[in-house]
Each structure stands twice: as C-alpha cells, then as structure tokens.
C-alpha cells in the first residue's frame, strides 16, 4: 500500500504513528522500511526503521518539541511556495529519506552492519580521492609521525638536505603539477573547480600529479641517501615535499592566472606539516 500525503499529514497532526489509522500506519511503516532496506548491507530486519526515525532522528529538544518534524513539513510547503504542488509528496519523502539516511549513517545499530573492526593497521590502505595510479593512501600517509622537535640539530640537517632537492625538483615540474602543489600548500581541495580550471587539467590528472611528485621525491631521497633507513628517508621526503609546496606557492603568487587560487577558502589552519 503506497503512502499518501494525507497519511503523512495525519501522522503530523496526531503526533505518534500508533495514534493513526491502521492504513496510515501500514503505509508509512512500509515506505520507511523500503527506504531503510534499499541500501545494500543495511538489511537487518530486527531493526525497526520507524522506531529509529521517531526516537533517534526526530528527537525532541528539552522543551519537548520536535523541530525536525516541523522541518519535514516545512520542506513540502517550500515546494508549494515554488508552485510545485505535484512534488509535495515527493519532497516530503525526500525529507524523510534525508533524515533516515543520517540515522543509518550515524546510529550504532545500523552502522554496525556496514562497519569494520576498529583495530586498523597503520599501513592498511584507506583510499583517498583519485590518487591516480599506484597504491591507495594508508593511515600512515594520512597521519604521519613528526620529527622530534627536541632534536633541533637533526631537523636543521634535514632542512639543509631538503632544500637543494626541492630546488632541483621544482625545475622539473610541469605547470599543472606546480598548481596542484600550490593548492596543497594553501590547504585547498585539489578537486575544487578553480584549481582544475587554473591547472587546465582533469581532476584525476591534478590529483595524480601529487603522487608523481611523491614518487620523484622518494627516488631522489633513495638515490642520495642509499644508506639511510626508510623512516629517515620518509621524513626527509616530507621535508622536501613541504619545501616544494612553498616554492610552488611562491611561483603561483607571481602568475596572474593563479591569482584565483588565493581566493578559495583553504584549510591551511587545519594543516599540519613539516614546514
């Protein structure tokens, strides 16, 4: 039995589904179950989607009111305002879907099904957006260790070696690679339309150029310091990467076409690197 707008209005007016007519109860429960179970991997029939919606998503505030329910019905009135009467039921369904989707994403009983064990290896691949060819990012790539800030001499030495390598690699970079590195320096997402526009390349190419730069840095570090252990070389690599980003950012400042990069809201303050 398909739900109707009248069913939803009845539910809003009577507050609880149990107070509604059997037809309304059946129709609304049916609709929500359809939404909830339509996502692959989330089909534990022991969970009652309606209960989750009412108790968890449409949770009342301390004043006992449920503004989220008002939000749902204001959603349909917005469509009415837009002169789209025939879309009202659709938009209400979409509103319920949007709220239910968040429940499934964030509420533990639902999440348990789509989730994985929490003991994750630092070297296990974590994905990452369009890295280009090569392996996926690991947790270690996303959260690398830092050099010991107490070891000042060590970090000065790393900087001393990192600078000439960065200078050398900078001369070999192509324009779009410099743009990608400059965007990285500014904490701007590489998938941002302005970055792609300035780089005049597709997203996969711009993202892939970071990987290419990383490979070039690792090669240089291994060639110059074959006797050092991997951990130290990786640390040197991060110093080089950081220096290279700064060089590219300086270059971008002098390029008129790159001026737009500096107008994008970046996340530099959330960034943490070796520079």
């Amino acid at each position: 039995m398909a739900d109707t707008l009248q069913n939803w209005i009845e539910w809003k007016q009577k507050c609880a589904l149990d107070a509604c007519s059997p037809e309304t109860q059946q129709a609304l429960r049916g609709f929500l179950a359809e939404v909830a179970y339509s996502y692959g991997g989330f089909d534990d029939k022991s969970l009652d989607p309606w209960h989750e919606l009412e108790v968890y998503a449409l949770v009342p505030g301390p004043r006992g009111r449920k503004p989220s329910k008002d939000w749902l019905f204001d959603y349909i009135q917005r469509e009415e305002m837009r002169g789209r009467d025939d879309w009202m039921l659709w938009s209400l369904r979409q509103g319920v879907w949007s709220v239910m989707r968040t429940v499934m994403e964030t509420h533990e009983p639902w999440r348990r099904e789509g989730s994985r064990p929490r003991n994750v290896s630092l070297n296990a691949p974590e994905g990452g957006h369009e890295r280009g060819e090569g392996a996926a990012l690991t947790l270690q790539d996303l959260l690398p260790g830092h050099h010991d800030t107490g070891d000042e001499a060590g970090s000065i030495e790393l900087q001393r070696f990192a600078h000439p390598i960065a200078d050398r690699l900078f001369k070999q970079l192509k324009r779009h690679e410099k743009v990608a590195m400059a965007a990285a320096c500014l904490g701007v997402p590489l998938s941002n339309g302005v970055v792609l526009d300035v780089a005049r390349r597709e997203k996969s190419v711009v993202c892939g150029s970071i990987k290419k730069v990383e490979i070039a840095i690792n090669k240089e570090a291994s060639r110059e310091f074959p006797k050092d252990d991997d951990e130290t070389k990786a640390l040197l690599g991060r110093f080089v990467f950081c220096n290279l980003k700064v060089l590219c950012c300086e270059w971008a400042k002098s390029e008129i076409k790159c001026a737009r990069l500096f107008t994008i809201r970046g996340h530099r303050e959330d960034y943490d690197d070796e520079c």
Partner: peptide, 22 residues
C-alpha cells in the same frame, strides 16, 4: 654514497588521533 643523514627520532601520531581518524 657515504652521505648519511643522522638518525632522527620520529614521533608517531597520538593514538587518540589515529582512533578518531579511523
């Protein structure tokens, strides 16, 4: 080929950061 970096101590990210990111 003899050029060698001194051993520099790498401090791993705190466990809470790893857990939070996971």
């Amino acid at each position: 080929s003899e050029k060698k970096l001194g051993k520099i101590k790498v401090v791993p990210p705190p466990i809470w950061q790893q857990k939070c990111l996971v």
